[in-house]
């Protein structure tokens, strides 16, 4: 069974997409599939960063890059 996820990626630009992932997919795997380095982003669900070893549930997610330039 697959899960539908509405994804907003704010990392090196802005993009939005709806994807389907397999049940029990972790956020780490999701980032791997998207070819996003997990060391450089956080995944936000309802305004909070989720542990990347957690499993994706049907929801709206935001992937946000960490940047330090000033």
């Amino acid at each position: 069974m697959s899960i539908k996820v509405n994804l907003k990626v704010l990392a090196g630009g802005t993009s939005e997409q709806t994807i389907e992932v397999e049940e029990n997919t972790t956020y780490e795997c999701l980032l791997d599939d998207l070819e996003i380095n997990q060391e450089t982003v956080i995944v936000l669900k309802d305004g909070q960063a989720v542990p990347l070893d957690g499993t994706v549930t049907s929801s709206d997610l935001t992937i946000l890059k960490i940047v330090s330039g000033g």
Partner: peptide
């Protein structure tokens, strides 16, 4: 409790809700 993400290439401002952890 909000962050603005600005993308100059698209000229978009996204507001991200952030909550206390």
């Amino acid at each position: 409790g909000r962050m603005i993400y600005y993308d100059a290439t698209q000229m978009t401002f996204d507001e991200i809700k952030i909550r206390k952890n």
